[in-house]
């Protein structure tokens, strides 16, 4: 796939346009804009959005930031809504009510609350039914829109309003769910985990593949939240990079069941590098809490090694 990313950013219509009300330093609009840029010129998009930060900040009547068709129904059913629209599109094409040469792509955006937790059943169903759609989870690791409540995507030890770190508990007490693996277990044609890192090459290429692979596809995209995580707004890209370089958020794809890690850090950084800049992990650096960092590192290592093993098996 030959392309010039600079040209794409400069010339391709963004579809997700400016004027939205998401926070400075938030990962989600950066991710949404780049994913939508992967749409081929001339193609139309129907975007379905779960309730969450992105929905309440990008489509407030009578304004919107989506230069495409857009639908929001509820928190738990963005995937079901998208799958219904896709089924209607197919039916209308069959009946000749939509021109054969018209191409509409169906893309869903949901946060981790609307994907890992509340929308999991709807997502699993839509994927299993084989709809030609792409589901994008922008994972910021908690219910940020409602005030930073823990979700099943929140990492262990993170301080949230419903897992407050203090004398009684050390922040969230459970490890995070691995949704990308759950989606891989649906045996979809394309599943990938990505982040807006460096020049966005990984994110752009995976978006293009996800949108243009026929059938149900899934992208899990790392999406930092300055309010929930507690980092300065200008450090978004630094947080993205540290997540990938510590192997907290590995970049990989599963194509027809075959695992491929798309970025292996030349030097895997210790997890402290990722944890230290974030307020939600501040308590882990207090004297006596070293065990938390050790345990966090062990979990990251375990999952990274498992991924390496899966990649090895795919060769």
């Amino acid at each position: 796939m030959a392309y010039n990313l600079k040209e794409i950013v400069a010339n391709k219509p963004p579809i997700f346009v400016s004027g939205h009300r998401m926070c400075a330093g938030c990962g989600a609009p950066v991710v949404a804009r780049m994913i939508m840029r992967a749409l081929r010129e001339g193609d139309h998009a129907v975007v379905s959005n779960a309730t969450g930060c992105m929905e309440v900040s990008t489509c407030i009547y009578p304004y919107n930031s989506w230069d495409c068709s857009y639908i929001h129904t509820a928190f738990e059913c963005a995937a079901a809504t998208c799958s219904g629209a896709e089924a209607a599109y197919k039916a209308l094409k069959r009946k000749g009510k939509i021109q054969e040469d018209e191409h509409t792509k169906f893309i869903t955006f949901g946060g981790d609350g609307g994907t890992y937790d509340i929308g999991l059943q709807s997502l699993s169903g839509a994927m299993e039914r084989g709809h030609d759609m792409t589901y994008v989870c922008y994972d910021n690791g908690a219910y940020m829109n409602t005030g930073i409540q823990r979700s099943s995507a929140t990492p262990k030890f993170a301080d949230t309003t419903t897992s407050p770190a203090g004398e009684v508990i050390p922040g969230k007490m459970q490890v995070r769910k691995d949704l990308t693996q759950i989606m891989a277990s649906h045996h979809l044609p394309y599943v990938a985990q990505t982040a807006a890192m460096a020049n966005f090459k990984d994110l752009y290429e995976k978006s293009e593949k996800a949108i243009y692979t026929e059938g149900p596809t899934f992208l899990n995209v790392f999406s930092p939240c300055p309010r929930g995580w507690g980092y300065p707004t200008d450090e978004l890209m630094k947080i993205n990079k540290l997540a990938v370089d510590t192997c907290y958020w590995p970049l990989y794809e599963v194509v027809d069941g075959k695992y491929k890690i798309t970025y292996k850090p030349a030097k895997k950084l210790p997890i402290e590098e990722f944890l230290r800049p974030q307020r939600r992990f501040k308590h882990m650096f207090k004297a006596g809490n070293e065990w938390m960092i050790e345990e966090f590192q062990k979990e990251v290592d375990k999952r990274w090694e498992e991924l390496l093993r899966l990649e090895g098996l795919s060769e």
Binding site: V56, C59, Y61, W66, Y70, I71, A88
Partner: peptide
């Protein structure tokens, strides 16, 4: 929703 010639928003935030 599926009219590509007239993209619309369905179910926006309505305050």
């Amino acid at each position: 929703l599926l009219n590509s010639k007239e993209p619309i928003s369905v179910g926006p935030m309505d305050l």
